[in-house]
């Protein structure tokens, strides 16, 4: 991302993202953190090509979304991107299995191929027991695993996750994050995750902090998750308000 700015025009003009630049490497697991209203969701919308930047350029795998037509964008999203949402956004009328297979049906894959991929994923994500159930009959953790499965089934290069642990309890969160980390390592899938939760961020390779739409800081993980988590908290405590408002208290 290079010098990306997004201005919401309207009765009140609002600059959601201001000259933000960063790069995510192939196979990297990156978290974006920032307080409410810092522009995280806008950022995600821009990268997921459903919104376009006012100025600046976004390049994904050599492609520039702003140069593509609507249909090309849709096909690009369908094949290259996977999405995981905070409230899962599973389609209520479909069973778990049907939710999983949905992206594949859009591309009209042969039935055998679809069945094979579902069998693989169900094993990997431990969804075998609930394939015939509906989204309102399963737990939050299972729902989010299903959503991750749906994001993975078409083997995208890039997964965008918006607060994937926001609605989950700690056990389910841990499962989901470990799953994402594993996917990242095993399949070398690039993952960009927006989160509030420092624990979630500590599973990543790198954390980018933004504030009021601008780049604030970034830190890289080290060998121990515990110390990485501590460093994330340090940055967050600075991020919370104006730097001079509060003294930087070290939490231990």
């Amino acid at each position: 991302m290079d010098e990306v700015t997004k201005v919401y025009e309207g009765k009140v003009t609002h600059r959601a993202i201001n000259q933000l630049s960063f790069e995510v490497g192939k196979g990297e697991f990156v978290a974006v953190m920032g307080p409410s209203g810092s522009g995280k969701t806008t950022l995600l919308n821009l990268i997921s090509t459903i919104d376009s930047a006012t100025s600046g350029t976004i390049t994904i795998d050599g492609l520039r979304p702003e140069e593509m037509t609507k249909t090309e964008l849709a096909l690009f999203r369908r094949r290259q991107l996977g999405f995981v949402f905070q409230d899962f956004n599973l389609l209520q009328m479909l069973t778990v299995e049907e939710n999983l297979v949905l992206p594949l049906t859009l591309d009209g894959l042969p039935l055998d191929e679809m069945k094979k991929r579902i069998a693989d994923l169900a094993k990997k994500l431990d969804l075998g027991q609930i394939l015939e159930k509906r989204p309102n009959e399963i737990s939050g953790g299972q729902a989010q695993r299903t959503a991750i499965g749906r994001a993975l089934i078409h083997q995208p290069a890039f997964i965008l996750a918006d607060e994937p642990t926001g609605n989950l309890d700690s056990k389910a969160s841990k499962d989901v994050l470990e799953l994402l980390a594993r996917v990242n390592q095993e399949q070398k899938t690039t993952i960009l995750m927006v989160t509030h939760d420092p624990i979630a961020a500590s599973y990543c390779d790198r954390v980018i902090f933004i504030k009021d739409g601008e780049f604030f800081n970034e830190i890289y993980s080290d060998d121990r998750r515990q110390t990485f988590f501590q460093r994330i908290l340090n940055v967050l405590s600075l991020l919370g308000g104006n730097v001079n408002d509060l003294s930087t208290i070290r939490l231990s």
């Binding site: 459903i50 609507k70 249909t71 849709a74 096909l75 369908r78 999405f83 956004n89 389609l91 859009l106």
Partner: peptide, 16 residues
Amino acid sequence: KRQFDVLKRMGLTEQE
């Protein structure tokens, strides 16, 4: 509306 929003994100074209 919400449902179509999800579908659009997942890469459904307008025609679809």
